[in-house]
Design a protein around this nucleic acid. Structure first.
Lengths: 155, 155
DNA sequence: GGCTTACTACTCGGATACTGCTTGTCCGAGTTCAGGGGG
DNA sequence: CCCCCTGAACTCGGACAAGCAGTATCCGAGTAGTAAGCC
């Protein structure tokens, strides 16, 4: 149970796109900025395009650029764009199978085990939705040499 | 990114062991109660034994029994017992790789991206740790026919 | 009849195959830019 | 000198393999109960 590393790549790349400015940046530049395999990063960025976080422009001067301001992009948006449906615990209703399922009547209420697990997951999702990329960016700007390095290696 | 179904099995099985009473219950009975593959369920229960949530007694009248009261078993205990280290987001420090890593000086502060993701995960873990099996059991007991079915199929 | 002993059946425990998802790679469709030729 | 056309290079986009964790299964080690044999 671990998150795809594409989430980490997407988060850093989105921030880099904001730091670099508004113009479109090619996939190769974004990959080399962090030493990532460009073809696989491209695959992740396409999912961000489908999710509406990025826009892509083909052609020789094309590339990816942010579709929204980073203030409007939450961590949950990025995680869901990469991971798809983020349901950690998937209830298979085993309470209705086997001998217990044969004896007990069909339940009408939701499974208490599921309810408890979903409750915890909602806390996680809310914590993700409460943080935007702008919040992370604010932390990054406390070290200007890092943002300068981003601009130098991308622009 | 989805949780192993062993977590669901473990949660229901732990509750069943509590409902059935104190005596040891064999792996086969626990599996048939929910129609699960017994050999694989056994593998999961062994992990609960290693985590100190269950005790196992070999022999012809042996089986598994709870090592603690359900009031002292949190959902986090069960998840960690099955899943091992539950770190969804694993920071690989890509900020230090590639061109940016070559230009920018080695960072001393923790990665802001990591900090934000870990903050959300801590909310999840706290929500898991705040709920015990006794809480789930309290919800289950609102339908006595279910607990009766458990006793009938296990004992 | 009571005790000892060997046997059997049943349990857990770890070692061994199989499946699906994550990761990684490749090639094709489309677009923009540049350069050359013609008017 | 300006416009058009052809070519090429670069971009995204989706289709195609490799590696690994989760899933499932099997067989062996160990123990308690049982039954037979002996005292």
């Amino acid at each position: 149970m671990r998150m795809s590393k594409g989430v980490e790549w997407a988060l850093h790349t989105l921030l880099n796109l904001h730091i670099a400015g508004g113009g479109p940046v090619g996939n190769g530049q974004l990959a080399e900025a962090h030493g990532l395999p460009s073809a696989y990063l491209n695959k992740q960025l396409q999912q961000l395009v489908r999710a509406g976080l990025l826009t892509s422009t083909p052609g020789v001067r094309g590339g990816f650029q942010l579709a929204k301001a980073i203030e409007q992009i939450t961590l949950l948006d990025v995680v869901e764009a990469i991971e798809g449906d983020v349901r950690l615990f998937q209830c298979t209703e085993i309470r209705c199978c086997g001998r217990i399922g044969e004896i007990a009547p069909a339940p009408t209420e939701p499974c208490p085990v599921k309810v408890a697990m979903v409750r915890a997951e909602d806390a996680w999702r809310q914590a993700l939705a409460a943080q935007t990329l702008a919040d992370v960016q604010a932390e990054l700007e406390r070290r200007p040499e890092v943002t300068d390095a981003v601009r130098a290696s991308i622009t």
